[in-house]
């Protein structure tokens, strides 16, 4: 799996989806840490400063038995809190929208350079670029590749999913039995595999290597081993493999 590889090429991402995730996750985390630190510092400071001491006395407005306590608190402070938070949250919403647009819409005229013979670099960008069908079964994944020849049967393989480096890979995910979820772990992308429905996601792998695919929805006794291997290969090797199928 990709752990050792990760160390070698720290800065290089595995896929476009990972880049999208990392950027957005960092944005969230910067803001989360900022807010968290402020809140915790404030809490700790107040608790220490105002803790009960030997000679300290109850504040004037201490609630006492026999009387409903006074109502206090400024609407203004609430407004400030809400406005500040709204600014932060708006940034997060905008960032999320941009990211999800990328995640869910394959680039215009799906560019499947190198994916299949006949769809070369020079060929026009083609909407009908063939997709790969991914089907979840209890408890394995099955990958069906369209054949270069029209109307030829799909080529189907279990457990192993091969794609060429840098290609735009569009996959249609579904299930043959129960609710599964198809996730390529290092690529930070997943979608549900639901019987009777097809969910489409896409990614562009940046590096050769093997990556762990797992099911992310409890689907029965074999759920924990319901995994597969994604192999990203150089284009010529992929074409050689593909032609051999």
């Amino acid at each position: 799996m990709g752990t050792r590889k990760k160390q070698e090429t720290q800065k290089m991402a595995f896929s476009n989806t990972e880049v999208v995730f990392n950027n957005l996750f960092s944005l969230f985390t910067y803001l989360a840490v900022l807010v968290g630190v402020i809140v915790f510092a404030l809490m700790a400071f107040l608790i220490i400063k105002y803790r009960e001491r030997k000679n300290s006395q109850d504040p004037e407005d201490t609630p006492r038995l026999g009387r409903i306590p006074i109502v206090r608190g400024h609407g203004r402070n609430v407004l400030i809190t809400v406005s500040l938070s709204t600014i932060i949250l708006l940034a997060l919403i905008i960032g999320s929208f941009a990211a999800v647009d990328t995640l869910l819409t394959p680039p215009n005229g799906t560019w499947c350079y190198g994916l299949y013979p006949g769809y070369g670099a020079q060929s026009p960008l083609n909407q009908d670029c063939p997709r790969i069908d991914v089907t979840g079964h209890q408890f394995y994944w099955e990958f069906s590749y369209p054949h270069a020849l029209p109307h030829a049967p799909l080529y189907t393989e279990k457990y192993v999913f091969r794609v060429p480096k840098d290609a735009t890979v569009v996959i249609d995910v579904t299930s043959a039995d129960v609710f599964h979820d198809f996730g390529i772990i290092p690529f930070k992308i997943k979608t549900d595999a639901i019987p009777g429905r097809v969910n489409t996601i896409w990614f562009q792998p940046y590096q050769n290597g093997t990556y762990l695919i797992q099911c992310f929805e409890l689907c029965g006794s074999g759920h924990y081993y319901m995994n597969a291997t994604l192999i990203v290969m150089q284009v010529p090797q992929f074409q050689a493999w593909y032609n051999s199928t």
Binding site: A32, S96, K190
Partner: peptide, 16 residues
């Protein structure tokens, strides 16, 4: 961290 999960984009990685 709930806000992370509220982001549909992050949830594509974090779900499950």
């Amino acid at each position: 961290t709930g806000v992370y999960l509220a982001s549909v984009a992050l949830d594509h990685a974090l779900r499950g």
